[in-house]
């Protein structure tokens, strides 16, 4: 018996942590659809300042608004990363110098360590599905807001050779924020990269 994977969303004091409520169900559906991993049918919400954080070695964090961690959140995050936890952060704005991006990068740097570009050849991009060109673009980057602002790399903070913070400006929160049943209307399932992130977290 293997304990089942629970998709956890981070709840933090500042900002709008619950801006992408449909993402967990969509990714859980994809994991169940493509892998044989035991996955809990519903996600969990975990406060960053809580001891419960350590029950979920992968946590998803998103939002539009500025992020300011409390001291307790910062301390917990540092300990979480040191012990092998991984934080997957997505900027729900997909911009370059937006409020979420500036504040989140600053806070993550203070709590865990500086973020740097993750090479597009990293194991993350071949953990399950193959993404030879790096992170897949989202419709919001290409035309959703009409700005064609494409981010070619994800950012990451490392502990040794392990990713402990994976940071995206690509707005996967919007890209994956739909009911799983609607995948049938897509020619290509755009949540496959989410499966890679989860498989990578579970295996590396």
């Amino acid at each position: 018996m293997v304990s089942e994977f629970v998709f956890a969303t981070a709840q933090y004091e500042s900002g709008d942590w619950d801006s992408a409520p449909l993402v967990p169900a969509n990714l859980i559906d994809s994991v169940a659809r493509y892998t044989s991993l035991a996955v809990a049918p519903t996600g969990a919400i975990v406060a960053l300042a809580s001891d419960d954080l350590f029950r979920f070695p992968l946590v998803f964090l998103t939002g539009h608004l500025p992020v300011r961690f409390t001291e307790a959140e910062r301390t917990n995050l540092r300990r979480y990363a040191d012990r092998g936890g991984m934080l997957f952060v997505d900027d729900h704005n997909h911009d370059i110098d937006g409020a979420f991006h500036k504040t989140a990068v600053e806070e993550l740097g203070r709590a865990i360590g500086p973020l740097a570009q993750l090479p597009n050849t990293h194991a993350l991009y071949s953990a399950f599905f193959k993404f030879p060109d790096g992170p897949p673009n989202t419709s919001h980057e290409l035309n959703g807001w009409g700005d064609n602002l494409v981010h070619s790399h994800l950012l990451a903070a490392m502990r040794g050779d392990r990713v402990v913070v994976l940071y995206s400006n690509k707005d996967y929160s919007s890209e994956w924020g739909y009911h799983p049943d609607n995948k049938r209307f897509l020619s290509i399932d755009n949540t496959k990269f989410g499966v890679n992130v989860i498989v990578y977290a579970l295996t590396r």
Binding site: S3, F5, T35, S36, G84, L202
Partner: peptide
């Protein structure tokens, strides 16, 4: 040898 999961990840680590 194991299934992808926290136990295999952290045992290897």
């Amino acid at each position: 040898l194991g299934t992808a999961g926290w136990e295999s990840k952290f045992t290897i680590a």
